[in-house]
């Protein structure tokens, strides 16, 4: 990849060099009076710089174009479901035929809702606590540096591997080193349940929450902290009254982004055992006992319907419609995050 990068850069550079050489000849010519005005030299500069600018601008525009094609193609495909029966689609359930009137994503919405809720309830407090420990309590020691390295590396672990962890902890009855039994985890979560999936995903997004919260905590002005100490606050009082309010927008943004990541993630759910075929019972949204039951989630429904399109081509459009719903949720979370951050920043100023 590095070679590729170098080839890319050097080819551009060579193009620029070529122009420079042409320019030097032209400049010599101009000095000897062969080429008229200095306007030519100006034109030469514009060509070389302009070509490069054109290249990189087209790289940016190509990325945006792809995004546009992706969104338009998905919305166009999903339109047949969404335009005619939007609420039925949201309230319907998994069906074996795509033209079924009761086809829809409700079970997936419930599953994704609970996953988001579990992530918010677990990853948020643990992540913020860890960030405050690292920024305010920890000494600048090798131990702390190791801790930060571990967190950075966790952020880079592929999501399927987290799925394996979930499978190992919540689904299979395992024993660590021969004496730390983990069977109680299976009993507590109910095995292949939405609770297991939510916990697995909160482990997955934990590094994201920690890293964004750390950045927010680091940005708190030292004057505020010293002011609090000067008034006699203890460390935890200082954190509660100064650091947390100041860092709240950043922490909130990070948590919302982490939730949107968790809602869109599919690979760990497949490993933990989300059901793709259909559920026997259709639980109510607030039915807490359903947390320990079999589940499905929005991304899983999309995968399932894409794979069903060979048997029933209408499922491709149903999948597109489900994607529109998923994208709406994810982008809503992202946008809320950005708007909240802007609002708080304006208020602070």
């Amino acid at each position: 990849m590095i070679v590729l990068l170098l080839v890319f850069v050097s080819s551009i550079e060579r193009a620029v060099m070529a122009f420079t050489t042409v320019g030097a000849v032209a400049r010599g010519g101009a000095r000897r009076g062969l080429v008229g005005t200095s306007g030519f030299a100006k034109l030469r500069t514009d060509i070389a710089g302009g070509l490069f600018k054109f290249l990189i601008l087209s790289a940016l525009l190509a990325s945006l174009l792809i995004l546009g094609v992706l969104l338009i193609d998905t919305i166009v495909s999903g339109w047949s479901q969404l335009s005619t029966r939007f609420w039925d689609f949201l309230n319907g359930s998994l069906r074996s035929r795509s033209i079924d009137d009761r086809l829809g994503v409700q079970q997936g919405l419930y599953g994704s809702f609970w996953i988001g809720a579990i992530v918010a309830c677990t990853a948020f407090p643990i992540g913020v606590g860890a960030a405050i420990y690292l920024e305010e309590y920890a000494l600048r020691s090798r131990l702390t540096a190791t801790l930060e390295l571990v967190i950075r590396n966790l952020a880079g672990v592929p999501s399927v591997v987290y799925g394996l962890l979930g499978l190992f902890l919540f689904v299979e009855r395992n024993t660590i080193f021969g004496f730390i039994g983990l069977g109680w985890l299976v009993d507590a979560t109910g095995g292949r349940s939405v609770l297991s999936a939510g916990l697995t995903l909160s482990v997955l997004v934990l590094p994201i929450v920690i890293i964004t919260a750390q950045e927010a905590v680091r940005a708190v002005p030292v004057q505020l902290k010293e002011g609090a100490y000067g008034l006699g606050a203890t460390k935890s009082e200082m954190v509660r009254t100064q650091v947390l309010p100041y860092a709240a927008p950043g922490i909130l943004t990070g948590t919302l982004l982490a939730m949107s990541r968790a809602i869109g993630e599919a690979a760990p759910l497949i490993l933990v055992g989300a059901i793709s075929g259909g559920l026997t019972n259709n639980p109510e949204l607030w039915d807490a006992s359903a947390l320990r039951e079999k589940f499905t989630a929005l991304p899983i429904i999309i995968v399932e319907w894409v794979s069903e399109r060979g048997r029933d081509p209408g499922f491709a459009d149903a999948a597109a419609a489900a994607i529109v719903v998923l994208l709406a949720l994810v982008l809503l979370l992202n946008m809320t995050a950005i708007l909240l951050r802007n609002y708080f920043e304006r208020k602070r100023d």
Partner: peptide, 20 residues
């Protein structure tokens, strides 16, 4: 806009790669 692209779930890219 690039951040939006970064936030799109990977199943969406799977769908896009296969069907577009």
């Amino acid at each position: 806009i690039l951040e939006v692209l970064a936030g799109i779930p990977s199943v969406v890219f799977g769908f896009f790669a296969l069907l577009w």
